[in-house]
């Protein structure tokens, strides 16, 4: 046994049990704590107008967003986000299941869809303003259109890739159309649908912010820009922080949903890798 191997075995022994747990926790929290502490102390007493001390930002957070604004700005933004996202999900998955199942419809629509997807979703905002003004509808529709493409295209791919033997099995045992949709199509394409939904979610957040910054009288994005224009630095920074937290929370919720709905998929892949 070589020296390095001895060291490795010793380390493995140390890593098992409590030491391993401590190391795991440390790995998760160490860098974030270092970063936050560094920010805190390096910005403390900052004279740079654009970069106020983190302490001020944190102090500004609560009064800026949790006294009134949460009901007038924050929650409406979040509802619009979720509303648009939900619409995109329903249309994307429904249409995707249809196009994914039909070679004819897929071939017919593919080039047009490729083009529509390639349009940066934010340029839809000026167009939709023509139709819907700058109200809530415009923003919901923008979010829905932007989030639609990744969901739709991934669903098509996923439905197309459903195993042929599984399709045959569903036909042989004469599953009803409803059961075919829910048990075969939806679940069979779910890994790709989830991938599309994850991409769609980040597009939706971007569009929520941009639509409010571009033209609106309310919402998180609008409020942050208002702070920027009035040079209310700690408040503006607290808004950036809020958007960051929103992004993180939504992605955590999504992860939870993913780990539940795709439990079978991760297990399946694990068993294929382990190879029996």
């Amino acid at each position: 046994m070589s020296a390095t191997e001895l060291v490795r075995t010793a380390r493995m022994k140390r890593d098992s049990g409590i030491g391993k747990q401590v190391r795991k926790v440390l790995a998760v929290v160490a860098l974030p704590i270092v970063l936050i502490v560094t920010w805190w102390f390096s910005s403390a007493g900052s004279q740079n107008f654009f970069f106020p001390p983190l302490e001020q930002i944190v102090t500004a957070f609560q009064p800026t967003w949790f006294t009134g604004a949460i009901e007038t700005e924050v929650l409406p933004s979040v509802w619009r986000l979720l509303g648009g996202y939900l619409v995109a999900g329903v249309i994307g998955i429904g249409l995707g299941a249809l196009l994914g199942s039909s070679p004819v419809l897929r071939a017919f629509t593919e080039p047009a869809l490729e083009f529509l997807r390639a349009i940066p979703p934010t340029v839809m905002i000026p167009i939709l303003i023509l139709f819907l003004g700058i109200g809530a509808e415009m923003r919901v529709v923008v979010i829905a259109i932007g989030a639609l493409w990744p969901i739709l295209l991934n669903t098509i791919e996923g439905v197309r890739a459903i195993d042929e033997v599984l399709r045959d099995t569903a036909r042989v045992y004469r599953l009803t159309p409803m059961m075919r949709f829910s048990t075969l199509i939806l679940r069979g394409a779910s890994p790709q649908i989830v991938t599309g939904a994850r991409q769609g979610l980040s597009v939706a957040i971007i569009l929520m912010v941009i639509s409010e910054m571009f033209a609106a009288q309310d919402g998180i994005g609008f409020t942050i820009i208002r702070f920027q224009k009035s040079y209310a630095m700690p408040e503006m920074w607290s808004g950036i922080l809020l958007l960051g937290v929103l992004g993180i929370v939504l992605s955590l919720i999504f992860k939870l949903f993913e780990s539940i709905s795709l439990k079978w998929y991760f297990g399946l892949r694990q068993s294929q890798r382990g190879g029996n």
Binding site: I206, M213, I224, Q228, M236, G239, I240, G247, S251
Partner: peptide
């Protein structure tokens, strides 16, 4: 990663 980059727009403008 999930922090939307557009959140930095006001900062970038300043």
């Amino acid at each position: 990663r999930p922090i939307p980059s557009v959140a930095f727009i006001p900062l970038a403008v300043l």
